Simulated scan of single mutants.
Amino acid sequence: MVRGSGRRRRRGRRPLALLAPVLCLALGAGLAAALPDGARPDRAGPRASGLPAPGPATAEPSADPPVPADPPPAGPQASSGSVSVDCGRGEEGHHNEDNVVLSPGLRAGAHHTHAYVGNLSTDAASTDASLAAAATSCRGGDRSAYFWPVLRRTDRLGTRPHERAAGHGNTGRILPEAAVTVEYRGSPVSRVVPMPRFLRAVTGDAAAGTARDKGGVRARWGCSGTPDRSTTRYPRCPAGERVTRTLVFPSCWNGLDTDSPDHRAHLRFPAANGVCPADSFPVPQLRIGLEYEVEPGVPVAVDSFPEQRHDPRTDHAMFVNAMTDEQMAAVADCLNRGARCRL
């Protein structure tokens, strides 16, 4: 297994027990299949189904890309467990305009504001060593960094420093997360191997609004009252329900690297039939769930690059695994046993 050494790109031996091809799950943004009838928000009234509303700074997209698929039913060899990590909901107010995964070393390199849970030191200057030594908001001692662009209420002015710092058209009061769920899941068709320490990961396409190829779209917006329905557009949720974002990460590791030049090639998504790409291995699948208290009719916008104009399809998130090897081994073991665990 690969151990961190302060560098973002490392190589190590492939797990000897996994030299054969391994099957894993499909999470497919970019799948050609359309949403199933039960998941189409336009099948019911807007109040009942979370019908998408136009963003505040852009017209409603003319074509709604397929929402990433949920996993198929677990097979007999599945690692069907789950592990929850309680990292709070960002009560510490950890925000900045950095992105240590995509723009390491570059202050304000994101050009928009990120919210964090987990590692309390994460910024552009973070290293493997600094992350390993920092405090964390996670109760079980997980020092991993979990972060995503903030969601803003655009009809109210931001007054706090981190609400004004990003600029680039990202204005308005930052909505606090009412709930944050950090969960690891296994593969529906095989066992998983532990992630290497200091693995970097990204999900979603921050440039999806202007990209010709929408295959990188991983946005899943919805309403808390209808968790089986999701869309790639901003939802209108009934009174009493929360706006939700679900951020699912790739889970097929190349067995060698903790990062790659494009920050994606080392960790890819499984295919629709549950098979990981050739020469890759299933690792625990990270899912981050976010919930926000938003009154009906209140305009919201996710932070974005200026040219993306807050397009909801640009929703994305980043992750750095700073668990100890023992913690990650325990996660993989729980998943492989089919248990329900809390780190």
Rank of each mutant, 00 (worst) to 15 (best):
T258Y: 06
S230Y: 03
R233D: 13
V202R: 14
G204I: 13
R220Y: 03
P250M: 03
S190A: 15
H266I: 04
Y234M: 07
P235L: 12
P188H: 10
A211Y: 02
R233I: 01
G186H: 09
A219V: 04
R242D: 06
V248G: 00
S251V: 00
C223S: 07
G222T: 10
R268C: 01
T210L: 04
V180C: 11
A201M: 13
K214Y: 05
V193C: 04
V180P: 08
W221N: 10
R218C: 12
T258W: 07
V182C: 02
P194E: 11
A211R: 14
S224M: 08
A211F: 01
S190Q: 08
A265K: 07
A265D: 15
G204A: 10
S187D: 06
T244H: 04
S251E: 01
R242I: 01
R212L: 10
C223W: 09
L247Y: 02
W253A: 07
V243L: 14
A239S: 12
E241S: 13
G240Y: 00
R200G: 08
R212A: 14
A206C: 03
H266A: 10
P261I: 08
G222L: 05
R191I: 01
G215F: 11
G186R: 09
P188A: 09
P250K: 02
W221K: 05
R218F: 11
P261S: 07
C237W: 05
G255W: 00
R218S: 15
G240K: 06
G215L: 08
R229E: 02
G225T: 13
D257Q: 07
D213M: 07
R236M: 11
V248R: 03
A211D: 15
R218A: 15
G255S: 07
T181S: 14
S230A: 15
C223N: 14
Y184H: 11
M195G: 09
L199D: 05
S187Y: 06
V189P: 02
L267Q: 05
V217W: 12
G216D: 15
S251I: 00
R264A: 15
S230F: 07
R245N: 02
L267S: 10
F269L: 12
